[in-house]
Design a binder for these strands. Structure first.
Lengths: 267, 267
DNA sequence: CGCTTGATTGCACGATGTTGCACGGTTATA
DNA sequence: TATAACCGTGCAACATCGTGCAATCAAGCG
């Protein structure tokens, strides 16, 4: 550094502040170029490289020749979420599917756990599946051997399925043997809960259109809290939990008349 | 780098970023052409070839003469069928998409050609897409940046979308700027035809719910015959045909007031 | 005040990565 | 078969990277 008294910090930024602004830029554009940053902050590329090295060490960016990119993990949030916990969810799905009988009509909500259930359903068992999730419908069409009914309406991108008044109205016009409402949170004392109001209304309609309700809950759902009530626990006949689910929790549900099914040890 | 024209990385993309974008393109179109990529990224074909070589070494693409394809291993037989004639259909889709304007609402029928159109739609153009095909809905959800409305009802496995009374009823309750009814057969004298009665009724409802109708027809549709009439030709404003479409046929449609759009020579 | 400590920076230099071009072989197309 | 397009390899030029090092500055302490 030259003997200049004012040069580096006057127009420039503090190191930490600089890194923060690099991150902002990165999130905005998806990429940063080292040479551009050096010019922007009026520092040498060496300093920029040091910053990028540090950010990469924290997993906040991926260093590439010439600059840095957003880490691959944040690029495909939707598809990646679909793969998360797949081993555990498959164990849950296998147990849930054992409750299904030949020729039944199923009402299946959107969600990754329910997609795992759809993938585990027995083929050519004369099953009719009603779903609000295009992903699940497509999955069953690809597998062939299912009767598929689609619930229409606006597709909520965060949920991956239709909810809202139109969807609710259509669900009211069907009748199913079993329904699988995706659980946001379930509690032995207060029943089934959802994060979103519209979503909760739709789940409630699903339950009312079905003879029996199966709630499939990963461990985290058993302790979660949510804002909107979907249904009392008395409307839930079956609860499928992971092998690792707490024993006290399981018996709490069983004591209230819910048939608790525990998945096999999932890998 | 010799006396190169300008700084190569300044205006262009980072090498790794370029490979990522090549992959995106590949997954979207199923194929990439080396010469096109070179022009797009403003680098020599040599660099593109190096990129493709590297991606192929990771098993992410399959190199072919002139470019690269998606590796066959990643495609299920059904998805593979979806890619059939993809080059021709993508050329059609690119032309069809040029008729779409920012902020419009589109009504898109099921079918592989229409799936290609959905894949080619510009992102973040404020488009609302109403479709009866779960595959198309899912595709747009994955791409993000679209408002998606689903038409409910029984899903016909042969068609890959909902048809029938319930679907028709829902279409009647929406309004679109443009609709893309999958064509089974189109004839300058007699209009648009469908193979199946229910399917034809649904397509007719689509057309009636839209201001303008765009028929996208591969060559074989221009000579096909079908049983059930969908609509008179006067209801069709635009016809998109392949580059190879017969000239006399094209002028026959043009003479009846249909705007005929000819796709670019598709490889 | 003088000194030390730690953090940050710029620079030098060797190592590695990337690019375009030239050249010769291979492949598709008419 | 002839032609043009495409491919792979080697090469030289250039860009970027990592490391070690010295200079600078702020802060703490005797």
């Amino acid at each position: 550094m030259a003997k200049a008294t004012t040069a580096p910090l006057q127009s420039g930024a503090l190191p930490e502040e600089r890194q923060q602004r690099i991150l902002d830029r990165l999130r905005g554009d998806g990429r940063v170029v080292a040479a551009e940053l050096a010019q922007l902050f009026e520092v040498s590329e060496d300093s920029i490289r040091r910053d990028l090295r540090e950010l990469a060490a924290q997993g906040l960016c991926k260093r590439v020749y010439g600059g840095a990119l957003l880490p691959a993990a944040t690029l495909t949030p939707l598809k990646q979420r679909r793969m998360e916990h797949s081993a555990r969810k498959q164990a849950l799905a296998r147990k849930a599917v054992s409750l299904v009988q030949t020729g039944q009509t199923l009402l299946i909500d959107a969600g990754t756990t329910n997609a795992a259930i759809a993938a585990a359903l027995p083929r050519d068992a004369g099953l009719t599946v009603i779903t609000n999730a295009p992903h699940i419908a497509q999955l069953l069409l690809d597998r062939e051997g299912f009767e598929v009914l689609l619930i229409g309406g606006r597709v909520d991108p965060a949920i991956g399925g239709t909810i809202g008044a139109q969807a609710v109205e259509q669900v009211r016009r069907v009748r199913a043997d079993l329904c699988f409402p995706g659980a946001c949170a379930i509690d032995a004392a207060h029943g089934l809960w959802g994060f979103d109001g519209e979503e909760a209304l739709f789940k409630r309609a699903m339950i009312e259109a079905s003879d029996e309700t199966v709630v499939v809950a990963t461990d985290d759902k058993l302790e979660a809290v949510a804002l909107h009530q979907v249904a009392e626990l008395s409307r839930v006949q079956h609860l499928v939990v992971e092998h690792s689910a707490d024993r006290a929790t399981r018996s709490a549900f069983a004591a209230r008349g819910v048939a608790v099914h525990r998945a096999e040890a999932g890998q």
